[in-house]
Simulated assay, not measured.
Amino acid sequence: MGYIQELRKLIGTRPIIMVGVAVIVKNEKDQVLLQKRTDSGDWGTIGGALELGESLEEAAARELYEEAGLAASSFQFVTVLSGEAFYYKYPHGDEVYNVVAVYEAAGIAGTPRINDDEGLELKYFSLNDPIANLNPMGRMILTRAGYLK
């Protein structure tokens, strides 16, 4: 059981500040890898919350493997996103104010595959075309990090 799940047992669904990462994976066509989420059924970026004692880069590597079955030789820091706009209420009721460190993964090894129960599908999308059913948090991350216009 992870840190956030343990915390939720104590405080329920009340809003918390959650520090996490979003990992941007691009292919040779400059398309970005997105995950169709189990909880909401829409597309979002790869990423998640830090565990106790974990660095942002360690969280990026862990989330990339957990959610997409991939490894990266390095992670390039892009930006940190936070504030009122990063409030999110999960479909099951948990509320968070996200602080998201965005990293771009380089030197990708492996073939994208669903590797946990958080995703239904993985797919590369062009950033030059509208992405149908992109969740609001994923859209905000990609826009504010400079990937979408």
Rank of each mutant, 00 (worst) to 15 (best):
G2H: 12
G2L: 12
G2Q: 13
Y3F: 10
I4R: 09
Q5Y: 06
E6W: 02
R8G: 01
R8Y: 04
I11D: 06
V19Q: 13
G20D: 01
V21I: 02
I24G: 00
I24Q: 03
I24A: 06
I24Y: 06
I24D: 02
K26C: 11
K26P: 13
N27Y: 14
Q31D: 15
Q35R: 15
Q35H: 08
R37N: 06
T38F: 10
T38S: 08
D39P: 00
D39N: 13
D42R: 13
W43M: 09
G44P: 06
G44R: 06
T45L: 07
L50K: 08
L50Q: 10
L50T: 02
E51D: 05
E51V: 02
L52K: 11
G53I: 05
E54F: 01
L56S: 03
L56R: 02
L56V: 00
E57C: 03
A60R: 00
A61W: 00
R62K: 12
L64N: 03
Y65I: 01
Y65A: 04
Y65V: 00
Y65P: 02
E66R: 00
L70H: 05
L70C: 11
S73A: 02
S74F: 03
V78F: 05
V80K: 11
V80Q: 13
G83F: 02
G83M: 00
A85M: 07
A85K: 12
A85P: 04
Y87E: 13
Y87F: 15
Y88E: 10
Y88M: 06
K89F: 02
Y90F: 15
P91K: 07
G93C: 07
D94K: 11
D94G: 04
Y97Q: 10
A101N: 07
V102H: 01
G107K: 04
G107H: 09
I108S: 12
A109Y: 12
G110F: 12
P112G: 11
P112V: 06
L120V: 11
F125I: 02
L127V: 14
